[in-house]
Write a protein that binds this DNA or RNA. Structure first.
Lengths: 191, 191
DNA sequence: CTAAACGGAATGAACGTTCATTCCTATTTG
DNA sequence: CAAATAGGAATGAACGTTCATTCCGTTTAG
């Protein structure tokens, strides 16, 4: 197994276990077992568990962005772009439940709170597509004049909630329902 | 200190610590310290930590319900009732950040998932006000014909998200913004 | 005086991390 | 070309710490 493969094996094992059982339900020894490496080997690739957890999140972000930006046309009307992004995000979550569960674990932990604090209060460079879309929506008077965080809440709040419900098996989201849900989110934010 | 007082002290201490640092950042010894009791004493009131965590959640539910139902008039139009419940809930969260943080910790943990599974798949007897409101809204054709879980997601998703943003200090929700946010949620679900 | 309540030290399981050792591959040497 | 050597990668037992829970001597209440 090459060096990169091994890093990937460890990352995959950690993602699976953490997504399934949370940070505290995924001891390093268990991650090592599932990755097929020795416990100490993990520390050749990740300085410690905190670093591992944060790097997994960066990896995940880098997988999501290209996916939802695929087919995104900045010239189209705002509504259409919003519907595209929302549906693409929802589809990604449904198609990659482990990524979604990990994302949720991360967000609802001190890691995620600190991360978000940096993003929102610092010079935010991430979530640019959504940010730009919302800012454009406000200046063009097609969206309600809410602070950005509220527009985020009105959009992502429901999307994350329905993704969670789908993945936990409380509902089955097929393509029609996805579109309708994202449209309902649009109803919440548009003027 | 009376027996009931002591139970309450333990519950309060546990709520504070868990709300602030999560389940794993609130060891029993620390809870005992803050409650001003011995570590062993906790086990006279709660069988173990799991039971403590679950009972805290039941206590919390019983505090929330009366609060948001205060001033709720079942005879009023659906929209008005929804706005009342949404705003009352948001106000409760903002006014009781510890309760809110605890609720979030609980929901995003195996405890909460299991709890929700029972609620949704079993013969649901909780969240009755909201459930009835949504069912009435659908039959009266004032709400979109979505499955209940989606209506819940469209309503609570944003509310929980903005409450979190307020409590973490990312935004300041004053009365005007609360009303506008809940109205935006209504826009998402009404026909 | 007795029985229940209490406190906090003791216990053992579980965890993240370390490190002395082994393994593997590539390079050097004869 | 084969054998010897070197050195980074990998290993997993061991360590120190933390935690939930138990245990038992002490205090309190009736």
């Amino acid at each position: 197994m090459s060096k990169l493969d091994k890093r990937d094996e460890i990352a995959r094992a950690a993602l699976e276990l953490i997504a399934g059982h949370g940070f505290h339900g995924a001891p390093m020894a268990m991650i090592a077992d599932r990755a097929g490496v020795g416990a100490g080997t993990i520390y050749r690739y990740f300085e410690n568990k905190d670093v591992l957890i944060n790097e997994l999140y960066r990896d995940l972000e880098e997988r999501i962005y290209p996916t939802i930006l695929d087919g995104y046309v900045p010239e189209k009307p705002i509504r259409e772009r919003f519907l595209h992004l929302g549906a693409a995000l929802l589809r990604y979550f449904i198609g990659n439940p482990l990524d979604f569960r990990y994302l949720e674990q991360f967000h609802n932990s001190p890691y995620g709170v600190e991360y978000r604090r940096d993003k929102i209060l610092g010079e935010n460079e991430g979530c640019d597509v959504f940010r730009e879309l919302f800012e454009e929506g406000i200046t063009q008077q097609v969206m309600k004049e809410f602070p950005l965080v509220i527009l985020f809440a009105l959009s992502f709040g429901p999307l994350l909630a329905v993704a969670r419900d789908h993945i936990l098996g409380f509902i089955t989201l097929e393509e029609m329902l996805i579109a309708q849900t994202v449209e309902a989110c649009w109803d919440a934010i548009h003027k």
